[in-house]
């Protein structure tokens, strides 16, 4: 089939372009402008050169936040991906229970972030929260407002509760797309359960799993609301993730210049990782399709 060349269609993209310019490009440019200047408000700016970038790059606080951020993303990926696959493998393939499972699984995904944070903030309290109370009854010294490890534990559990469903639903969709013939062939070959998983289910889920990993990584790398509501970065700075630290610099201290430099570096890291994921994904698709 021959396609007709029609470049006029580009004009139809213009409204989107204008919208994106005002919602993303212009604010981003402004942030770049802020990052090389200092201000005390009133729209009066003083040139600062590369000072803010140098300060941020040499600040222990930023590196510590970055370290915590990477550790948080690594922990939740290590839990949510295998758990999500496990849940998906054990979900019913057909029948009335499919809908029940799907609805139950999507429930946490429908709850807004700040509500999830509030739920866990109360749930984990030792005096009135069910979870905190249970821990106290079991004789476990648990207090997420005092103990760094408990705070991390609460945040990780909360994220697992909130987002494992997403991985499970994506993996389930991948599993559903495998034709029965594959399983029949495996049965004829007397393949073990592990081999069916390793050589049929896992390769067929690869595409959706990569999307799941990308989504979960980006979301957890930019997490703000939930830890802000539950711990606010504390105790001390134990759960001070990048976004929380950034907001403290920008709004807590009103240091717009350093915050702008900080955001640009944060953005660059996110951009780099997204690009790597995207490239890996599209290349796997191409090889799979070839």
């Amino acid at each position: 089939m021959n396609k007709t060349v029609n470049q006029k269609a580009w004009f139809l993209v213009l409204p989107v372009l204008v919208l994106v310019a005002f919602s993303a490009v212009i604010p981003l440019m402004t942030v770049v402008n802020y990052s090389v200047q200092d201000t005390f408000g009133n729209n009066v700016f003083f040139p600062a050169g590369l000072e803010w970038f140098r300060d941020t790059l040499q600040s222990d606080r930023m590196w510590a936040s970055l370290g915590r951020q990477i550790m948080f993303s690594a922990i939740i990926l290590a839990i949510e991906v295998p758990l999500g696959i496990f849940v998906a493998l054990n979900m019913p393939k057909k029948g009335a229970w499919v809908s029940v499972c799907l609805v139950l699984m999507s429930l946490p995904l429908l709850i807004p972030w700040n509500v999830v944070g509030t739920i866990w903030q109360i749930f984990g309290r030792v005096d009135i929260g069910l979870f905190g109370y249970l821990m106290a009854q079991l004789g476990i010294d648990y207090n997420y407002t005092q103990d760094a490890l408990d705070a991390w534990f609460t945040l990780v559990i909360m994220d697992v509760w909130h987002w494992t469903s997403l991985v499970a639903l994506l993996a389930y969709a991948g599993l559903q797309s495998i034709p029965d013939a594959y399983y029949q062939a495996a049965k004829i070959d007397q393949a073990s359960r592990w081999k069916v998983f390793r050589y049929i289910e896992l390769p067929k889920m690869q595409g959706v799993l990569l999307i799941a990993i990308l989504l979960r990584f980006m979301d957890s790398f930019m997490i703000y609301t939930e830890p802000f509501v539950v711990t606010g970065g504390g105790p001390g700075s134990a759960t001070n993730f990048l976004s929380i630290d950034l907001v403290k610099v920008a709004l807590g201290q009103m240091d717009l210049g350093p915050a702008a430099a900080y955001s640009i570096m944060y953005f660059l890291v996110v951009l780099l990782i997204s690009w790597v994921f995207y490239t890996v994904m599209t290349n796997i698709d191409k090889r799979g399709g070839a």
Partner: peptide
């Protein structure tokens, strides 16, 4: 362009 706080350096950068 006041509200975007342009500087010559950033203007050249984006240009």
């Amino acid at each position: 362009l006041d509200w975007m706080a342009w500087t010559p350096a950033t203007a050249i950068f984006f240009a």
